[in-house]
């Protein structure tokens, strides 16, 4: 059994409405140093599956390749 952590984010150039709103809100709160906020998804998965198979899961279901990129990390130990 392997443990995976998957980060799904919008591709470069795809407008991220929640990220843009968070960015504006932070600036309104006085955090003027904030330059770019991107909001994505974080998925934690335990699976009897290879990394290649997890990548296939991302391509099929967990991410939409038209608008999103993903990064898979393998979590070592407990």
């Amino acid at each position: 059994m392997a443990r995976y952590e998957i980060y799904v984010t919008y591709k470069q150039g795809i407008f991220d409405p929640p990220g843009a709103t968070a960015e504006r809100a932070l600036k309104n709160l006085g955090y003027e140093g904030v330059e770019e906020v991107k909001i994505g998804k974080f998925i934690r998965m335990s699976a009897d599956a290879t990394e290649a198979s997890v990548a296939e899961m991302c391509d099929k279901l967990l991410a939409n390749p038209v608008i999103e990129d993903y990064r898979i990390e393998i979590v070592e130990g407990d």
């Binding site: 407008f15 409405p17 929640p18 843009a20 709103t21 939409n64 038209v66 608008i67």
Partner: peptide
């Protein structure tokens, strides 16, 4: 249909949220 790639593009959240 967009998710099934039967049509081009994708539908994101409204920019107004």
């Amino acid at each position: 249909l967009a998710e099934a790639h039967m049509l081009p593009g994708a539908l994101l959240r409204n920019d107004t949220l």
